[in-house]
Write a protein that binds this DNA or RNA. Structure first.
Lengths: 229, 229
DNA sequence: GTTGGATACCAATTTCATTTTGGTTTATAT
DNA sequence: ATATAAACCAAAATGAAATTGGTATCCAAC
């Protein structure tokens, strides 16, 4: 009862030992620390005792664990809002338009840097087809494809992915408005000229005009959208 | 030149043959049809010719294809590029920084419009805590929280969701860089002053300065990152 | 009797090699 | 010229094996 090995407060010693070890080691970017089996060996304690110490730190919120994954410093990654269905439920058409106005002009600016002749040819095809559209559905298909071609032309997988996410939310959001528009796009539909101005700017590598054109276009779309409600 | 096998319109025949076959067969729930190698054998045409016919149907939007996955009837599912893990696999640190430079300044501009006093108070707390950080991990935690607080202050669920997606990809991307930095952030670390300029601009509703400050900050981060490689 | 250590086992997850698949190129033949 | 076959590539799916946190069991020490 007198030697330290039976001291009931020994576990507390392991906790402090562990704290020191964790402060000292330089862990990976993801905050993952060595598996329990290695850690117990490195600290010279049994796995059972190490787990008790880890339980304490986990209760303090200093780390989190998951079977098969490992043990990680910091707080458990919060449920990201990246789920499209959840996003669409929380969002609304006004937010979608605001997000488009934030993102797409800058994506368009980047595209003006990097668009290839093939990209521009596809944009031109979208322009032609959208003018020829016989129904609003067809028009929207070519409109969507044009905007996505611009995002592709940015040559950035990640930006394209974010654009796709935004687009998926846009389609999933309940717009609540009924189509009271004419059965097919009229020849003087505002988007035609705006789209062409954007593609022209991209083709001439006029990055400022490309961004400005896209912003103006989306602001027109936003205005038309909100007028109707 | 006279027999039908050299008829230049034969390919059109293959398209119709394929249409008939697709209308006839009972495809799986996911709309997947047999791989090209099987399909060409079943239809008794070469894979090259089959692919031409598939190109036509794809251009019509009747089916979509993806390497490794297969060919599917109908339109491409919404969440194709929205998966974080897939994005992280495809992307890289340079793309992540470019995407941040595209998105965050505009989010910051929006935040300068809408930030509440509570938002700004939290930003100031992040500034203080990041200055007090004893390790790089602590610093990064407060840095991340500052940037997310700014995104929250935009009052736009969708923008916040896109920001979270970007952040998740950032954490998942393999940076491959070794930590050669000092053990703790030095008092003259460039980010401190830059962060404070951004929060100041937001507080004074100087939307142009907010966006410019964020852009300058991220460009500095990008430069430091690429220097090191 | 209680405590701690070693061991074995479980299920979730990752890892890695293999296979499959659409996309592309090359050589050959008609 | 055009079509075909074959080979090759990279993305993705697949499946076996290893890894990892969680749990139960048995045993020794006191």
């Amino acid at each position: 009862m007198l030697n330290s090995s039976t001291d009931p407060h020994l576990e507390k010693g392991i906790v402090t030992q562990l704290r020191g070890y964790l402060a000292q080691i330089d862990l990976a970017d993801d905050g993952r620390l060595p598996p329990e089996r290695e850690l117990s060996a490195a600290l010279g304690v049994s796995r059972t005792e190490l787990r008790k110490a880890l339980d304490v730190l986990e209760a303090e919120g200093q780390l989190w664990r998951h079977v098969g994954k490992g043990t990680f410093m910091g707080s458990r990654p919060l449920d990201t809002f990246a789920d499209i269905a959840a996003l669409a439920r929380r969002s609304n058409p006004a937010e979608v338009m605001r997000a488009r106005i934030v993102m797409e002009p800058e994506i368009c600016r980047a595209a003006a840097f990097t668009a290839t002749p093939e990209d521009i040819a596809e944009m031109r095809m979208c322009l032609t087809r959208s003018r020829q559209a016989e129904t609003w559905r067809q028009y929207e298909a070519w409109d969507t494809r044009l905007h996505r071609t611009i995002a592709e032309a940015s040559q950035n997988t990640l930006l394209l992915g974010l654009f796709d996410t935004l687009n998926a939310v846009r389609r999933a959001v309940t717009w609540g408005r009924l189509r009271t528009e004419p059965v097919k796009p009229l020849p003087d539909h505002h988007s035609f000229a705006e789209h062409e101005a954007i593609v022209d700017a991209i083709e001439h590598r006029d990055i400022a005009a490309a961004a400005a054109g896209m912003r103006a276009h989306l602001q027109t779309v936003e205005r038309k959208l909100l007028d109707r409600q």
